[in-house]
Write a protein that binds this DNA or RNA. Structure first.
Length: 509
RNA sequence: GGUCCGUUCGUCUAGGGGUUAGGACGCAAGAUUUUCAUUCUUGUAACACGAGUUCGAUUCUCGUACGGACUACCA
């Protein structure tokens, strides 16, 4: 029942964690709804009891939340069309399926799964593919082929059956897709899809069309894997007499593996060293554990920004977008037609960009949490200074933590190569002198210590590089790192002179 | 196999009948720097192929190749 109001839905199946492609589909739906002041619904398509994974639904809700995609209506929030979980929508689907049978658009089929498999095997042996459709449905076990009293008898006996759609024998269909334009199909090549299963549940096709109609969905934005079933869905709308209010369709390109062939799969992440899921997920059935962007240290804004530009672009050279900016700029017309290879490097780059824009205080709080997890606390002011100093070289907060280790603990060992290269015979005496100089300074601000040291070595005729490398080694234990005068300002006068003395003691003369 | 979809630098992409085919990631070089990064500058690199239409095609059409999806009582 399409109205002028934009209403879109994200309709995942709770068969596991939502992966990158699913999140992007949700994102594009969300963006489209926001762009047009419409509604974003979440509907859970759990009509396959066999594939249900406990926890998957909660995961999906949490993942959308983490990404900042607020659901207006649906599972978890309710709404005028509740329930939004298909398994709870009771008799609705059966009634609609029977309506189709009554109108001659569908029929009862009693074929046993085993019989069908046999036929498939036979066909395959001949190098053919078995299709349950117009060409052979009269020779199969269904209400179209069997005499009425035989059907009646089967029903009375309680014979298991499904309801199949009666595909037109030979009809040319020209359908519209917002992203792809006109797509043509001939129904002669299509099969009589099962709409209602013997277990009393609808299949995706029926439930999807019925719910989209009932929930007044205006646009169906989904993955390209659904394009082949577009004719079936369009025909269903027609059979129900809902053609006038049929939603508009947009089929999104797929996300492909970074290298190799095929679409991105959940295994690729572990294989190639990047997460495929927004958040960590432990599959209760298999015990497998999957990494997540959240746990890997990505900011949700960066993750969403990266995803938005995978298959869509604004037509300008802007690359950094807040969720609000994305909502303002998004349009389905600018979605690409071809599949996009996922690029983990670019994802990292986005995070680096976002990290640079974060206030030092916010980074310090995140860093503080990490340190607490390791069992120690530091003064917040100190952490803010550390973040200010280290953020530009970091992609993740964890990079700051790793680069900041020497702030929290004086070096016990010293980079071997650095020592070999920079620890000369005259170094110990020089550093001891330096320690005395620094100990006597009134201000330990970076600018002041630097000025004092520069003046001092100029008098001594020592090169800055010559001194600084050994100095750095003594203070941090490493041969590389941020500007040393900034480091010792944070470390403080006492700690600095102490480390200088300790290094001389350890590394000797 | 069949049906459908797609094809611009290695990757994400802009563009579009006449352009030095633009940007970003990556990579490389240079600059800056006490080191390593960062940053900045520069560079590297693309219209899958073949016909047709046209004065002219990377852009339009067709074909081929290649890639992808679908082909369940899964979604």
């Amino acid at each position: 029942m399409r109205t002028d109001r934009v209403r879109v839905r994200f309709a995942p199946s709770p068969t596991g964690a939502l992966h990158l492609g699913g999140v992007r589909t949700a994102l594009f739906n969300y963006l489209f709804a926001r762009r047009h002041g419409g509604d974003f619904l979440l509907r859970v398509e759990d009509t396959d009891q066999g594939r249900f994974v406990p926890g998957a639904e909660e995961y999906i809700i949490d993942a959308l939340k983490w990404c900042g995609l607020t659901v207006d209506e649906g599972v978890g929030v309710g709404g005028p069309h509740a329930p939004y979980r298909q398994s709870e929508r009771g008799e609705i689907y059966r009634q609609f399926a029977e309506r189709l049978v009554a109108s001659g658009n569908a029929y009862l089929a009693f074929d046993l799964p085993g019989e069908l498999n046999e036929r498939r095997a036979e066909a395959e042996a001949r190098g053919e593919i078995f299709v349950y459709g117009a060409a052979n449905r009269d020779a199969l076990k269904n209400s179209l082929a069997l005499p009425p009293d035989a059907v009646k008898k089967l029903l009375e006996e309680g014979a298991g059956h499904v309801i199949r759609f009666k595909m037109p024998a030979n009809e040319e269909l020209a359908l519209q897709d917002i992203i792809r334009g006109e797509v043509r199909f001939n129904t002669a090549l299509l099969d009589d899809k099962v709409l209602f299963k013997a277990d009393g549940m609808p299949t995706y096709h029926l439930a999807n069309v019925v719910d989209d109609h009932l929930m007044e969905i205006s646009h169906v934005i989904r993955g390209e894997e659904w394009l082949p079933s577009l004719p079936l869905h369009a025909l269903l709308y027609r059979a129900f007499g809902w053609e006038d209010t049929m939603p508009l369709f947009a089929h999104l390109p797929l996300i492909l593996k970074p290298v190799g062939n095929g679409k991105l799969s959940k295994r690729d992440g572990n294989k190639m060293g990047f997460p495929v899921f927004p958040m960590e997920f432990a599959d209760p059935a298999t015990g497998e554990k999957w990494r997540g962007y959240k746990e890997d240290g990505y900011f949700p804004e960066a993750f969403v920004n990266m995803l938005a530009l995978l298959g869509w672009n604004p037509g300008t050279e802007q690359e950094i977008f807040s969720l609000e900016e994305l909502a303002g700029a998004f349009s389905l017309e600018r979605v690409n037609r071809s599949g996009a290879r996922f690029n983990p490097d670019k994802a990292r780059w986005f995070n680096h960009k976002y990290l640079q824009e974060k206030p030092d205080e916010e980074l310090a709080d995140a860093l503080s949490l990490m340190l607490e997890a390791e069992g120690f606390r530091r003064d917040r002011e100190e952490l803010v200074k550390i973040c200010r100093l280290l953020k530009e070289r970091a992609t993740f907060v964890a990079d700051i933590r790793d680069a900041a280790r020497f702030f929290f603990r004086a070096p016990l060992e010293y980079d071997e190569k650095g020592v070999r290269k920079n620890w000369k015979a005259e170094t110990p005496a020089l550093l001891l002198d330096l320690a005395r100089l620094l100990a006597g300074l009134d201000s330990f601000a970076a600018a002041d210590t630097e000025a004092a040291v520069r003046e001092w070595i100029a008098d001594k005729g020592v090169g800055l590089g010559q001194l600084m490398n050994a100095f750095r080694l003594a203070i941090t234990g490493f041969a590389d790192g941020p500007r040393l005068f900034d480091v010792i300002e944070i470390l403080g006068q006492d700690e600095t002179t102490r480390r200088l003395a300790a290094a001389v003691e350890r590394l000797g003369h």
